[in-house]
């Protein structure tokens, strides 16, 4: 088992929106086949960090990065990097479920089709992805209905299935449960824990209990700094820094 292998290596990483520095000298490593949570108060840079990992921030004209992030040994902040192949390797699930207004089947097939998968393999891969996202049993009889007819929780698991279909190594999740009710959240969390056998999961969450429930490692960000990074268990029971303790005990944030 390749557990413990470094999947993401962040070295002296800085990120700017125009003149505002949003991430300050971040350095830490994320291991393969683990769930790593990124927690912190609003505006701490946790989503920004996540979106650096698949270069989604490229869409913002004034964004600029310094330092390095290596994924599987490859520096992704290098200017000449092939962003498209990076994004195939690093999938993403967004905060608000964003199924496309197509059928359930076509949603999952979307990434396969744009990547040129031949038609006869698509059906199997869609089924496999939906099974991996624990959604198959709920939708197998209505694959050709609109994805918008699903409940919020189902939509989010569909977005997970869609991300899994193109066989990424890492799945980024940006507060994936923030728009879901407790039952749907519980299902999604269960799914996340299952997924780490096959994928490396990095999840940004507002919800500290959620981080404690599902993640192996936790990083606490505040105002652009990585305050503390360690085993989830240790961060939540014996934080090293005063401010971490104040945050996780709910004294602010």
């Amino acid at each position: 088992m390749e557990q413990g292998r470094k999947m993401v290596e962040v070295m002296n990483f800085n990120f700017f929106y125009g003149h505002a520095q949003c991430l300050k000298n971040i350095s830490f490593d994320i291991a393969a086949h683990q769930v790593t949570s990124i927690i912190g108060p609003s505006g701490c840079g946790k989503s920004t960090f996540l979106r650096c990992l698949n270069r989604m921030n490229d869409l913002i004209p004034s964004a600029r990065m310094e330092g390095s992030i290596k994924i599987d040994g490859q520096d992704i902040s290098a200017p000449g990097l092939d962003v498209v192949s990076l994004r195939k390797k690093v999938g993403m699930v967004f905060q608000k479920p964003n199924p496309f207004p197509k059928s359930i089947f076509d949603n999952v097939a979307y990434g396969l089709r744009i990547n040129g998968t031949v038609d006869k393999h698509i059906g199997d891969k869609v089924e496999e992805s939906l099974k991996n996202a624990v959604l198959w049993d709920e939708v197998k009889s209505r694959l050709h209905e609109s994805a918008l007819s699903l409940s919020g929780g189902q939509q989010q698991r569909l977005c997970v299935a869609r991300a899994l279909a193109i066989a990424p190594e890492i799945v980024l999740m940006d507060e994936p449960a923030s728009a879901l009710d407790p039952v749907a959240t519980a299902k999604l969390e269960e799914l996340i824990i299952r997924l780490k056998q096959k994928y490396t999961i990095i999840i940004v969450t507002h919800n500290m209990q959620q981080a404690a429930r599902i993640s192996d490692m936790t990083a606490f960000f505040m105002q652009g700094d990585l305050v503390e990074f360690g085993l989830t268990n240790q961060i939540f029971t014996r934080p090293k820094k005063q401010i971490t303790e104040e945050y996780i005990t709910g004294r602010f944030g």
Partner: peptide, 26 residues
């Protein structure tokens, strides 16, 4: 919605693929 563009790009679409398959039709 921008979510259609981002969602498509995050699945490894090029910008033109995202526009052609997930923006223009709508």
């Amino acid at each position: 919605p921008n979510a259609y563009r981002e969602g498509s790009l995050a699945l490894g679409a090029t910008k033109w693929q995202a526009i052609r398959t997930n923006v223009l039709p709508y």
